[in-house]
Amino acid sequence: MSRTRISLAISAALAFALAAVGCAPQPQSDPAAGSRKALDCTSESSSLHQRGRLTVATDSPAYEPWFSDNKPSNGKGFESAVAYAVAGKLGFERDQVEWVIEPFAHSYAPGAKSFDFDINQISITPQRAKAVDFSTSYYTANQAILTLDGSAFAKATSLGAFKDARIGVQVATTSYQAVLEQIAPTRRPHVFSTTKDEVTALRNGQIDAIVTDLPTVFYLAGAELDNGEIVGQFGYAGGTPEEFGLLLPKNSGYTPCVNRALAALKADGTLARLTRQWLSASANVPELKR
């Protein structure tokens, strides 16, 4: 409307209002306000891969003690239990949780995802975080060394004893870099596609030792090898243990929701209880220094 069509009465009212306001400070506009969305952590959130369901990914086979009987949906094993605990805090019933298979090395590759979060002992690293989101840590893990009873390395008491060893690691894991930085072997680590391939190589004498996270070493020594010997554990990156996080699609609107759920599980003691229940044996392994 042009000024010429504003009535004198309205003009007078406006003038009075302006005079009353004077130089009082005025609210500042927020240019981002229109683009921000309220955080929606419900089971019907548009951020979910499928509304009404929580889609959780992990690799196959799914090893103990992280899972049990290669059945992530049974709620047994540390990561299965954590996934269902997170789901509960987010308001999902058990039958609303759907498990899908996602190979470890594919999980943090750039691109669209077919899950809401992946739980698979995935270490939080700056490089991976360029392509995906990570939750806050749900577990802090040391690396560990597994060999065969009676081998030349079974009684080793330092990382230096493995300087000339043939060491096996799984592809795309932080164990590879941990070996290079903490052990600095004279030979490049042997890289295998799966943990099963590592175990086969150890049995066949192709490698002298396996390096992977400590709980997995416990499983391999107890379930996959009759003569497995856990030599010890060591920290990564200057003595700082690596942290596992739930992996989400990049810029997922559900990342803050997952973090909120994990914070609640830490606060009420659930996460500590699940750690003791499924991973308690880890505390009895000697720590190896250089």
Results as ranks from 00 to 15, higher is better:
205 G>C: 03
172 A>M: 12
238 G>P: 01
188 R>Q: 14
176 Y>I: 03
76 K>F: 03
271 L>E: 06
213 D>L: 01
39 L>G: 02
241 P>C: 13
241 P>I: 13
90 L>W: 03
277 Q>F: 04
239 G>M: 08
213 D>Q: 10
189 P>V: 06
87 A>H: 08
253 G>V: 03
61 P>L: 09
84 Y>D: 08
181 E>A: 13
20 A>F: 13
283 A>S: 15
146 L>W: 10
168 G>M: 09
55 T>D: 04
131 A>D: 12
253 G>S: 04
215 P>E: 11
10 I>T: 15
79 E>A: 10
69 D>M: 06
190 H>L: 09
17 A>W: 15
258 V>T: 00
4 T>N: 12
265 L>W: 04
133 D>V: 04
89 K>D: 05
89 K>F: 01
239 G>K: 03
234 F>A: 05
135 S>L: 07
275 T>I: 10
192 F>R: 03
114 S>M: 14
24 A>M: 12
252 S>T: 09
3 R>P: 01
239 G>Y: 04
272 A>N: 14
247 L>P: 01
28 Q>W: 07
200 T>F: 10
107 S>A: 15
265 L>V: 02
4 T>C: 10
5 R>I: 11
33 A>R: 12
199 V>N: 00
57 A>M: 09
249 P>C: 02
28 Q>E: 14
159 L>V: 02
262 L>R: 12
225 L>T: 04
176 Y>Q: 14
256 P>T: 09
290 R>K: 10
266 K>F: 04
45 S>F: 12
47 S>Q: 13
50 Q>G: 02
72 P>Q: 12
257 C>K: 08
73 S>T: 07
258 V>H: 03
172 A>R: 14
226 D>S: 15
234 F>G: 08
238 G>Y: 06
256 P>Y: 12
79 E>V: 07
237 A>V: 11
109 A>P: 00
143 Q>R: 09
